[in-house]
Every structure is written in C-alpha cells, then in structure tokens.
Computed example of a mutant assay.
Amino acid sequence: MERLTLPAGGAAAVDDYLEYRRIVGEDDGGKLFTPEEYEEYKRRVLPMRLQNRLFVSWRSPTGMDCKLVGPETLCFCTHRYKQHKTDFETVPQQRPISLPCRVPGCLCRAYLYVPLNGTQPVRCRCKHFADQHSAQPGFLCSACSKCSGFHSCFTCACGQPAYAHDTVVETKQERLAQGKPVGRDVPYAAMGALTGFSSLAEGYMRLDDSGVGAPSPELLDSPGTAMDHPFLKAFQASATAPEALTDVGTSSQVSSLRRPEEDDMAFFERRYQERIKMEKAAKHKGKAPVPSKTKPS
C-alpha cells in the first residue's frame, strides 16, 4: 500500500482546497480561481447564497420529507444537484421553482429527484430504468415505444408509491412556516435541505420535524426491559444512581456486559441461556403448590 506524506503545512493546504471546493462547487468550470478571483467570488456570491438559499426535498403526500437533497444527490437526468442552478440573486416568484441543469447538452429543465432501489434507479412501468428515459419534460423511454412517460410504482419506505411524491423546492421562510428545520446559514454551494447528519437518513428514521419527529416523552422516560440491547442496558446502569442499582442486583448488571474473551456468538448464546433459566425460574416460582389429596376417613 502506498503511503502518502505531506510536507509541512500540507494538511492545511488540503483543508483550504476542500473549503474552496465546498464554496465554489462547479462555478469555476474546472479551473481553479486565482486568489483574487476567489475573494471576488466570495464577496459577490456568499451574501446572495446566505439570503436566498433554496431547500429541496422529496416529499410524501403525508407531508414527510422522505429524502433531503444535498450536493451529491442525483437528478432524473443523472447529474448531481450541485450541477444544477442553485444560486439566485432574487428568488423566483413562480411556483414550483425550476432548477435547470447546467451541464452542456443536458435537456433537464428542472431538478427532479428519483429514488434508488439499492444502488440502481427504480424501474418504470415499462420495465426500463429511469436513466433509460429522456430528461426532457415528458420523460419518454428511449428503449421502447410503448411508454407514455416515466411512471414508477416503486414503494417508498413511508408506504407511499414513488409517483405520489413530489420534488419540492422552497425558501427558508416557506420551510419555517411549516415548522421544518432549516439549520444554520452556511456559505457552501448547493446544500439543498441538508441541515446535519440526521438529514442523510430516510424520512421515517429522521427524528426531527422533517421526518417522523422526536420520540414522545413517554417513550424516552419508559423503563428498560430485558429485551433492550446490552449496550443500552450498560449505559442505563452507569447512568442510574448508586442507590437504585442495588435493586437491580450486581450479578445481572455484570451478566449483561460482554466479556473480553467472548465473541459475538458466545455472548448471545450465554445471554440466551441466562434468559431461558430466568424464565424457567419465574415460571416455577409462579406455580402454586398442588394440594395433597387425602381420602376422608
């Protein structure tokens, strides 16, 4: 394996380049700006970007944002979101807002998210993949003549079909009016609706107002059970007051922890056998003694 070594100050130069790439995106046309051009670009673009950021999501008819679009998210035209027009001096008044693709020769006139089935794009009802259809409005299939336009019956994890979802482009004010998170103002290009690490999760897994929402206080305050994950039980034990630990018992706390010499199978087998033994003991304890039958004298 080849080992890369950086000269003194090399790590800082890499960080500066990554910062440059996040801010400039595709706007330099593949040729790095000079320091003067870079400063002029930031002076001209960053105030506009911070004020007129557009949030893009793939929304279920239930109102859940099943997918939050970011710089690398693919469009129906197979180009990424960062390759579309995302910066505006003034936000367009018409709705929906169209974000055309800037790749030369691409026919895409508006960013349109298409879900993936694993690593492949979903299929149309004509049995061909999404990338086998034209990016021009109408989305006709290029592999057959019977297709009247891309229409997928793929079912999202939210339970709704893909064709019932919409690619939504909205401003910060419109998103705040719906109670959805907007995160902090950042100078980076084509951030879409990403506001944090949780934005990378699917909507039904996202515990914020763009997904299923935060767990209820009843769920968060509910006591632990025997079926909880060992790591969770160990954390609960360490967070519990010492006087409360005496009720649980030291042996059960130690038993729930994995021993250094145990592999996965040995650990779960030991925990399984302990649970079976506890269930048998509880069952035996719950049985009432059978009264002896004596014949009347």
Rank of each mutant, 00 (worst) to 15 (best):
F267E: 02
G30V: 04
T195K: 10
V56E: 09
M205V: 09
E262L: 02
Y188G: 02
K283A: 15
A13C: 04
A8F: 13
D185H: 09
F129N: 05
V91K: 02
Y20I: 06
E19S: 08
G149T: 08
V45R: 11
Y38C: 02
G149M: 07
K285Q: 13
K180E: 03
R109T: 15
M191C: 10
A143C: 10
L176H: 00
F129S: 14
E274S: 08
M1V: 10
V45F: 07
Q236N: 07
M265R: 12
H284N: 11
F197T: 13
P296W: 08
R123Y: 09
T73I: 01
L50W: 06
C66E: 13
C77Q: 03
Q132M: 10
G211C: 09
M64C: 12
T119N: 14
L232Q: 10
P296N: 14
A190M: 05
A177H: 02
F235P: 00
R44S: 07
S145R: 15
E170M: 08
L232W: 04
H151D: 12
A177E: 14
R259W: 09
S216M: 06
G105K: 04
G203Y: 05
M278V: 04
T155W: 00
C66L: 00
S252E: 12
P181E: 05
Q93W: 03
A281Y: 04
C153R: 14
F197P: 06
